[in-house]
Design a protein around this nucleic acid. Structure first.
Length: 850
RNA sequence: GGGCAAUUAGCUCAGUUGGUUAGAGCGCUUGAUUCACAUUCAAGAGGCCACAGGUUCGAGUCCUGUAUUGCCCACCA
């Protein structure tokens, strides 16, 4: 019997080897022989621009589902991928460049792209190694990258199909422009921050009006008032003359528009269609000219005279100052609080600008997604996100899918530069197509890239099409598990694009996890210094410890706190499991082979019942996405039941087959959450020829357990615990237990050992300290001891008496007896009887003291 | 402004459709320990389940309202 298990479990000795063995054996690939329905999850592709973080480690949830389904006999596919993550990677890379005092403008666009590609590829291999170290049973043979040629081809094809269906258009509209990235962004990529800014009340001909942005006044093409505002009715439709900060006079139309709030400022607003989304809308309604005062570089344009070339932020103060000098400033409110948009990736102030972009018309596109949610074809865990997703989709406006960044997937468009007006303005396709259409040199390639979410929004079907799994039942995928924070950014878009392209939902269930926070529920951030590095933790405590810490005590959709202390606790759990195995294996005879366990002692029946219940409950919990609960059930099964009671009991008379059966069952149950330690122990079982990862999921045993026998052990436990309590409180050493119960006597040796009792004696009539159990057992005690216990006994007695009273009044309530379910009422009756009996014993005992 | 969470032991959190005297881990107190594990064992203390109403035989759980905290969305000249 090879049972040279170390005294403690050392994860570093096992993990890498085990992972290698799993991968080499092909266990991560969906088993073609598995008979059940395919189960598939697409890994949300991590951004290949750094190391994994605790958020990435949360994909443990997916591994749990995959391992569980694999063991259950489903062909389970977990498909890994890597995201080029467009702007995010570019920003990270540019930060690196900045450290060397460089920027992307020190390179050609092509050089830059190639450098980022190298950077990404390097990071990818780091990332892959780190994902492997987490124990993730991803099928690496199917690894995909968002910029792979086959993926790109599929994304391009979708784009063409969308275009042909009339969902794509190119338009010159106001967009969220980031002057640092020199790119437009979607509304959802703008994060608003509340801040204080001066609110300038400037003189505009006959008006005084409030503005935060005097620097945009060169782009003003009207002044607006509310149509109902009596104060200004006479001006509506007129032209006013005002003085420019540059000295000259100019004229502006006065328009009436409902958007203007008469209560705000003076009720007059300058209208700058080129630099404000609302003004843009007003411009459309009133057919106003669009004059661009700020360029894509964030600097003032030629329109602004001497201010041209000045960054907009600087220009503001300068212009305000100059206006004051010229007497054009009425006053300044320095306490104006409002929220201002910043680019969520690079943190630069967003400049609304009018720039031509590619747009996705969502009006029709979103309908099937809305329908799929409403009909329940796509379910959310937790459920409350259903409404959030619906609301978002219903209010969704056209999506700007083009980006002017340098790192990304190019929009596959070629423009007509042939001078031949009979040819189309642009085509969608390859360069070859462009040559065919426009002739050599007769075209210009689009330089815009796709919004990274436009391509990753196609990830489920694109990856499966590229690997050839699409038609083999892996699509729709079973579950999409990802962070709550990208519900709108990613999940809803996958629904729209997936349904458009395939006619089917991309996934049936969306499971959203919350954010991982520090020990006190605070967001982790470098500046706070509270970041937990998953690799540091797994190195110190083992991967399984981290995985358990990310599973237990964490609720779907809610933030979950994690601390080194918590991880350490689960390291201890793994060590406990290891030592349980060490202990059991150490006592097996040479050449032991397990047989079907026979239940002989009450402890056996009790343990078997516990194992069955836990198996059933764990299975149900995992199936219902209650992973935390599953973890807790197993934790308690191993530690509280198996180790603390059954193993201890087995020391008196071991039942090897049941010990092994219990150990194996626990290893199977815990494997999805703690794969390494369970596999490490499993590999020590010489009769097990296949790896645990591919071993069938346990089912409740068919062997009959006796409730009566199990209950006997439960009684014994209570006697033991009650004895321990008294012994601990009164500092007794080896107390004598008296009992009138023959069954207890049969387990005398066991009780003696577990309770550290001196003797267990059969008596005709009990005396001494009655142990608070349903078994008839007493602790032999002299008057001194009983007197010492008197206060406690009285307390106990009063507690029972009060409880009995509530039970009796409950049963005295006819409404309760009539309307509560029969089994609940019966339970109450049983408890009443038990309590009454107990009370009687306590009373008679107290009487002997008087 | 709209929405969603959360509020339960000192801390971090469970508590599945309403039904035992509300649980866990950590922390704390006391004690133990050659015999699988000090990454251990045993025992203990600690809770008006945020507050106020309501529904019900019965509420931590359902409803209404209030407060505090966090998040999301929209608007802000």
């Amino acid at each position: 019997m090879p049972h040279q298990l170390d005294k403690t479990y050392d994860p570093t000795k096992h993990e890498a080897k085990i992972y290698q063995r799993w991968e080499d054996s092909g266990a991560f690939k969906p088993n073609p022989k598995a008979k059940k329905d395919p189960f598939s999850i697409i890994l949300p592709p991590p951004n290949a621009n750094g190391h994994i973080h605790v958020g990435t480690a949360m994909f443990t949830i997916e591994d749990i589902m995959i391992r569980y389904r694999r063991m259950q006999g489903h062909p389970a596919l977990w498909l890994p991928g890597m995201d080029h993550a467009g702007i995010e990677t570019q920003v990270v890379y540019e930060r690196e460049l900045a450290k060397e005092g460089k920027s992307r403008f020190d390179f050609t666009r092509e050089q830059f792209y190639n450098n980022v590609m190298d950077y990404t590829k390097t990071n990818q291999s780091i990332m892959i190694a780190e994902l492997k170290s987490m124990g993730f049973s991803l099928d690496w043979s199917r690894l995909k990258f968002t910029l792979d040629p086959d993926i790109t081809e599929i994304v391009y094809d979708t784009f063409k199909r969308l275009h042909d269906a009339g969902y794509i258009y190119r338009g010159n509209r106001i967009v969220n422009w980031c002057p640092f990235c020199r790119s437009a962004f979607a509304d959802i990529e703008v994060k608003y921050r509340e801040q204080l800014d001066p609110l300038y009340y400037i003189k505009y001909g006959p008006f005084v009006l409030a503005t935060v942005r005097p620097e945009t006044k060169f782009g003003d093409t009207a002044v607006a008032v509310n149509p109902k505002d009596q104060r200004y009715t006479k001006y509506v439709g007129q032209e006013i003359e005002a003085e420019s900060v540059l000295g000259h006079k100019f004229k502006l139309k006065v328009i009436a528009d409902d958007h203007v709030d008469p209560e705000f400022g003076t009720g007059v607003v300058k209208v700058t269609p080129a630099h404000d989304p609302n003004d843009w809308e007003m411009g459309l309604r009133h057919n106003l000219e669009v004059k661009q005062a700020i360029g894509t570089d964030g600097r003032l344009t030629g329109l602004t005279g001497k201010y041209a070339g000045m960054p907009a932020t600087e220009a503001r103060a300068q212009i305000a100052h100059d206006m004051e000098e010229r007497g054009l400033m009425d006053h300044i409110d320095m306490n104006y609080k409002h929220s201002v948009g910043y680019h969520d990736r690079c943190g630069t102030l967003i400049e609304p600008l009018v720039v031509e972009q590619w747009w996705l018309r969502v009006g029709e596109l979103k309908k099937p997604a809305i329908q799929a949610i409403k009909s329940g074809e796509i379910k959310f865990v937790p459920e409350r996100f259903t409404k959030a997703a619906l609301d978002w989709l219903e209010n969704l406006r056209d999506w700007n899918i083009s980006r002017q960044n340098w790192w990304g997937m190019r929009v596959p468009v070629y423009y007509n530069a042939s001078g031949d007006k009979s040819k189309p303005e642009y085509i969608i396709g390859t360069e070859e197509d462009a040559v065919k259409t426009y002739g050599k040199g007769g075209y210009e390639a689009e330089t815009d890239n796709f919004d990274t979410w436009f391509s990753s929004g196609q990830w489920p079907f694109a990856t499966l099409m590229a690997t050839g799994d699409f038609d083999k039942g892996s699509y729709p995928t079973s579950v999409m598990e990802t962070g709550r924070d990208i519900l709108f950014l990613w999940v809803t878009r996958m629904m729209m694009l997936g349904l458009f392209r395939t006619g089917e939902v991309p996934f049936r269930t969306v499971y959203l996890h919350g954010m991982v926070t520090d020990a006190h529920g605070k967001k982790m951030s470098k500046s706070k210094g509270n970041v937990i590095n998953p690799l540091e933790m797994t190195g110190k405590y083992g991967t399984d410890a981290l995985r358990l810490a990310l599973t237990i005590g964490i609720t779907p959709g809610n933030d979950g706190a994690i601390s080194e202390q918590k991880i350490e606790g689960y390291r201890n759990f793994n060590n406990k499991l290891w030592n349980v195995a060490r202990f059991i294996l150490g006592q097996l005879p040479e050449d032991y082979l397990p047989a079907e366990p026979k239940l002989t002692s009450p402890a056996d029946h009790w343990m078997m019942a516990k194992l069955n219940t836990a198996t059933r409950d764990t299975t149900k919990a995992i199936g219902d996405y209650r992973f935390s609960e599953a973890g807790q059930i197993i934790y308690s099964l191993l530690w509280d039941d198996f180790a603390d009671w059954y193993l201890e009991a087995s020391k008196v008379s071991p039942n090897h087959d049941l010990l092994i059966y219990g150990l194996e069952t626990i290893l199977k149950l815990v494997h999805p959450i703690a794969p390494f330690v369970s596999e490490a122990i499993w590999s020590q079982l010489p009769w097990q020829k296949q790896q645990l990862i591919v071993t069938p999921w346990p089912e409740p045993a068919t062997i009959k357990t006796s409730n009566k026998a199990a209950l006997e052990f439960e009684n014994l436990k209570q006697v033991v615990q009650a004895t321990r309590t008294v012994a601990a409180e009164e500092q007794l050493s080896k107390p004598t237990i008296l009992t009138t119960n023959d069954q207890l006597i049969q387990s005398a040796g066991l009780i003696q050992r577990l309770a550290r009792a001196g003797e267990v004696k059969r008596v005709e009539q009990g005396s001494g300290l009655y142990l608070d159990t349903t078994a008839d057992a007493w602790l032999q005690a002299d008057d001194k001891l009983i007197n010492a216990r008197r206060r406690r006994l009285t307390g106990q007695r009063n507690e029972k008496a009060a409880y009995l009273k509530t039970l009796e009044s409950k049963l005295g309530n006819t409404k309760y007896v009539e309307s509560a379910p029969a089994n609940i009422v019966q339970e109450t009756r049983d408890r009443r009887n038990e309590t009454a009996q107990l009370l009687e014993k306590l009373d008679s005992q107290l009487k002997t003291l008087n």
